[in-house]
Design a protein around this nucleic acid. Sequence first.
DNA 1: CGGCCTCGAGTTCC
DNA 2: CTCGAGGCCG
Length: 670
Amino acid sequence: MSDAPRAAELRELLRRHNHAYHVLDQPTVDDATYDLLLRELQSLEEADPALRTADSPTQRVGAAASTAFAEIAHLQPMLSLANARDIDELVAFHERVVRLLAAAGIDEPPTYVTEAKIDGLAISLLYRDGVFERGATRGNGEVGEDVTANLRTVRTLPLSFGDPQAPTLVEVRGEIYIPRAAFDRMNDERAAHGLPVYMNPRNTAAGSLRQIDPRQTATRPLALWCYAVGVLDGVAFASHHEALAWLGARGLPINPLTAVHRSIESVVAECARIGELRPSLPYDIDGVVVKVDAIAMQQALGSVGRDPRWAVAFKFPATTRTTRLLDIRVNVGRTGALNPYAVLEAVEVGGVTVRMATLHNEEDIHRKDVRVGDTVIVQRAGDVIPQVVGPVLDLRPDGAVPFAMPERCPACSEPIVKPDGEVQHRCLNLRCPSRGLELLRHFVSRGALDIEGVGDKLVARLFELGLIARPSDLYRITQEQLEGLDGFKERSAANAVASIAASRGRPFGRVLFGLGIPHVGEVIAQAVARHFGTVDRLAAASAQEVADVEGVGSVIAEAVVGWFADADNAALVADLVALGVNLELGADERLAVGHLTGTAFVITGTLSVPRAELEARIVAAGGKIAGSVSACTDYLVAGEAAGSKLAKATRLGVAVLDEAGIVQLLAASA
DNA sequence: CGGCCTCGAGTTCC
DNA sequence: CTCGAGGCCG
């Protein structure tokens, strides 16, 4: 029997996914699935080299795009920007800046720099001794992908400063884009050669930068504007505009739509002016970036989360289109929340076809007054997520009726309730099939148990077939059961079973997150796991004790205690434990560097240092000091002649440290 | 008690 | 990405 037909099928599949990924920049499968297909083809070709055609995706260097680029940590995180959608928000930004500066003892009015916000791809460039060394995509802001080879092909990127006095290290921030005219020319050429044309400049720039072969990238008309210095050795700027001038003097391209303003009125006028220029500019922009000019003021203002408080992005209104609202349907989420969504007649918005959009909740639908049959205005929020803005009332058909939430759950027919003061309608049935399925999806998802090879589709199928109803059922799935499903090959069945088994060792915090306790997301789950150490101690805790966890108040604490009080949930936990799923903190987690945050200590007995000093050091490392030992205590620090507290700790199974032990723990966390 | 900040939850496209 | 809401600080 020949594998040739399967090999041909795989080649075609991979070719199509590749095209979608690189040319359209719209992946059709996740990386893991792609890798799986590629590996299957590779093994077929190894078994029978005659199957290896010259155009096989296995012959393209680094065809497994997911692993082709090394990760690079930015010297300084690449921040994001808060948005101002209108002039009021811009003025509010200014007022906040003034207020915060005054609070920091600076009464001088701020000067601003405005820059056109280029609709491209943020990158970071590193110059060592004035020579371009490497460049990376923004990634998650902390870590990006190394695209040095591709960046070298960007003709306006200087490979060196030509400056003998260049500082040792300069990190430059910029935006890679494709000028409109060049984009159109490229598409004309492609069309002439019978090649598919690209959808929009931004996605094409993104795809081009992630080409495996830099020679491909070199054929794309990429360009660069630089807008900031990340890190710079030896040169200190007093202002942002000086930094830009410094970059410009070294050959880095600075966008000409850059100006300094002495008042917010001037900034507002500039936003309007650039908005008018927008259609005639030779490249796409999506707003205006406004930055406080003085570096000293920037430092005084600082940042909140990822957003600096000294800068804001004034966003131009999103491009909108109209289409028909065909239907309003309702999903039931993991928490029982009813989420209405719009089914739309397919429409192109900003280079993407939109067919669905969330409508959030009933209140939202009524506020917008959209009805089935309406012609509605659709936009993409932040140019990404499709949104229904509102109806075109003139085009409303006769007899269009306002939307009403179903009175019974569309999944389980139980009555729907809307608690007072809440926006969401809910299905309270804990056994609602929709909720069960959504919980399973959540359980296997990335941030939780992260079970590779078991995605939404497989989970839904197994759920429908009745093979899994609760998370613990996953661990009883056999390879044979999976192979019984059509379209499921032996290899992927084995992979899925293996990754399910491997997920049993996930850290406690992630498993806890996977349980889907209301209000307990990734962060809270982690904090709770750290605090209690084991599920048993968590399950035995009172709401009062749970509320001791940092960031947990009465609402979340009640939710946690209530969850464990439910017999089914308790049974699920017991089942998971019996199946070998990890539900306690690993020793390494307890001792992990800088991780005393949320850890509760009790000190007893006589120590060689003053107790206050030891307490201060524990608190400095993020730990908490309690007066008496309870189930919530992580460590009892016992000195000489410890008495009843030590006895109680031993009885409760609380870890006990001697003085050397706590010193070691503190050192490990420094 | 009010305002800010952080977190949770649901989400769209291919 | 965005909205809503819980938590916490002043």
